[in-house]
Simulated scan of single mutants.
Amino acid sequence: MKIMPILFLLIAAMAAPVAAQADSRWNNAPYVSAPPVVTETPDELKSRVVEISTFPTDLDPRIWDGDKLREDVRQRTLEVIEYMFAELKLKNVTIQSVEVRGSNVSYEYDDAADFGVRVFLDTSAYKGSIEDLAARIKSYNAFIEVKHEGKVLLHGVPLEVNFYVIRSARLNPVKGVGHYSITEDKWMERPAVQESKFDRNQMLADMTGVTTTYNGLVTAYFADKQGFECSRWKDFSKSLGDYRNAGIDKSGTRSTENLVYRLLRRLKVNVVEQSSALALECQNIHWSLD
């Protein structure tokens, strides 16, 4: 994966500002008015790399009482899920299990980590198309994200909920990776301290490459929003996802790639979310008529 900084820098070169007169209409409400560029200095990035790769030795006490999920957290989570599920108004579908995995079920959380809950549905009695239902659930998850993301806090920890019709292999318990059943209030897999396989020098190089690419895209986009090819945002986001997944598959959650991805979400500008937001704005502008 050491070629990643070079690839991102090549993309950055392709994303150089275009010689065009920006149309001010697209820099006024409801559109983003100022380029959301990454402003951290090299020294600040270096400090953040050290910070993101320094891990706690206990589970988050805001969520856990020792190794037991706090009862008020468990009950409130189930209440929220019951409310959300009722909104779907599904016939012959029930909640099969409610589970949580991620940073806050491990020794890798920080103040920005969310409580990522996964709700698996029992569709054994469902009469309709499972594929159509899965598509509907995917849209509902997107709706939940827009409506509630970062707004439901459990002792300061954001609650994130996603519903699933099908359990893919990636959602199954993995040995040593914390996985808790909220439904049964017990561990499905206890967390182990993961092996550290990151290289801080490589992390800094990758961060520099990614942020340079991102800033180049932002500059080009704001120079001519209507002339910008929206697929460039999607390509960038996909490259980040592929980069992260390759690192996890090869070296686990404490890989260089996964930690870089996490840090990109914790900069003054959340590179991951902002890229998706600008991709959506770009599409809306392209659909508009002069």
Rank of each mutant, 00 (worst) to 15 (best):
M1L: 10
A20F: 06
T39Q: 13
E184M: 12
G102R: 09
Y261W: 07
H286C: 00
P30A: 05
R262C: 02
R70S: 11
K250Q: 14
V117T: 06
M14T: 08
I81M: 05
V218P: 01
E273Q: 11
I81S: 06
P30E: 06
N172M: 14
W187Y: 06
M1F: 01
S251C: 00
I285Y: 05
S24F: 08
G227C: 06
H148M: 13
Q96A: 09
L259M: 12
E44Y: 08
F222P: 04
G156T: 07
P17F: 04
L264E: 09
L263F: 01
A192T: 04
P35H: 07
R190G: 08
I3H: 14
L121N: 07
Q21S: 13
L171Q: 15
T213K: 03
L90K: 09
L59V: 09
P56M: 02
H179Q: 00
T57R: 03
L204E: 11
K268R: 12
M14R: 00
L45I: 15
K268G: 14
E40S: 02
L88M: 15
V260S: 06
S33L: 05
V146Q: 12
R262A: 03
V193H: 05
A113P: 02
P5V: 01
K197I: 04
Q274Y: 04
L88P: 00
V161P: 10
T253F: 06
R70E: 08
R167W: 02
G247M: 04
R62V: 04
V177E: 11
E184F: 04
I3T: 12
Y221S: 14
G241F: 05
K68A: 10
D249R: 13
K197N: 15
T57Y: 01
S168H: 15
F8Y: 15
D122F: 05
D290I: 03
R136Y: 03
I63V: 15
A16E: 11
V177G: 01
I95N: 07
Q21P: 02
D72C: 11
G156D: 14
L153W: 09
D122E: 06
A277V: 14
K68N: 11
K151E: 11
R200G: 04
G241M: 10
S129A: 07
A277Q: 14
L264V: 03
E108T: 12
N162H: 13
L69E: 08
P17A: 04
A15T: 00
C230W: 05
A205H: 07
E108Q: 12
S288Q: 13
K68C: 01
L240Y: 04
R170W: 07
W187C: 12
I52P: 06
A134I: 03
S231Y: 03
A34G: 00
T219S: 15
Q75N: 13
D122A: 01
E51K: 15
K238D: 12
R136M: 03
Y164L: 13
L153T: 01
V218E: 10
K238A: 15
Q21G: 04
M207D: 05
K138H: 14
V100T: 10
A169Q: 10
Y180M: 01
L10D: 11
Q283C: 02
L267K: 08
S275V: 03
L154D: 12
R136I: 02
I63K: 08
